[in-house]
């Protein structure tokens, strides 16, 4: 069963809806045993970096999550703030990230003349850079919903799955072994999101 990690910072309800729509089953949990038994994990996230890391710490499941992901290689999908939290650090906060991938999170910086607003909010397209099961048989020119002011910079370029243009080309999704992460919200991206979640279920 897919277990959505519940640390009070995500839109777990929407994810559960989307998983159901895509033909899967899930539960929302912060229970150690349930996390340990999960066949797949989702780390959602809406909110600020330090608050997210703090809440995740407070659940007392970080050690078990670490074992599941790093040792057991359980597939995990990290979404939005979830993607940022698995990097080493973020310009948004002072606390260290989980460091599951060799990357850091930095803020968009634009000049007034560029006319680009922060947050990057709305629908944008992604360019697929490497094949991954998550984008298997995906529609042409998939578009997804983004809401974020910070973005992930991968030090291992091989981790990059898709990029998106917003003032610059940034990493909109990545994969390292069993770790999948999207900056966009598949659970809010209509048929494109359903397809992506369906692919995650089918993995």
């Amino acid at each position: 069963m897919i277990t959505i990690v519940d640390y009070g910072m995500g839109n777990a309800g929407s994810l559960q809806n989307m998983i159901r729509k895509a033909g899967g089953e899930s539960r929302i949990s912060a229970n150690r045993e349930e996390i340990a038994k999960a066949s797949k994990l989702i780390l959602p996230g809406v909110g600020s970096f330090d608050n997210g890391i703090t809440k995740l710490n407070e659940t007392g499941i970080l050690d078990i999550l670490h074992i599941k992901v790093i040792q057991d290689k359980t597939p995990i999908l990290c979404i939005c703030l979830g993607m940022q939290m698995i990097t080493r650090q973020s310009e948004e906060g002072k606390m260290p990230g989980l460091g599951w991938i060799n990357a850091k999170t930095i803020r968009f910086k634009f000049t007034k003349e560029s006319n680009l607003r922060i947050p990057h909010m709305g629908w944008n397209t992604v360019k697929i850079k490497k094949n991954t099961p998550l984008f298997y048989d995906m529609h042409q020119e998939p578009r997804f919903y983004f809401v974020h002011s910070f973005y992930v910079v991968c030090e291992d370029k091989d981790d990059i799955v898709t990029t998106t243009d917003y003032g610059l080309e940034f990493v909109s999704s990545l994969q390292r072994d069993n770790i999948f992460a999207t900056q966009f919200h598949p659970e809010k991206s209509h048929l494109y999101g359903i397809k992506l979640i369906h692919n995650f279920i089918a993995m």
Binding site: N11, N17, Y145, E187, K188
Partner: peptide, 24 residues
Amino acid sequence: FMPLAYGGGVSTLEQVRKVLGLGY
């Protein structure tokens, strides 16, 4: 299955958390 925003009578942080927790 699209982004949602909610407004109306939001005046406490608890309400903010609850609305976002519902998936908004």
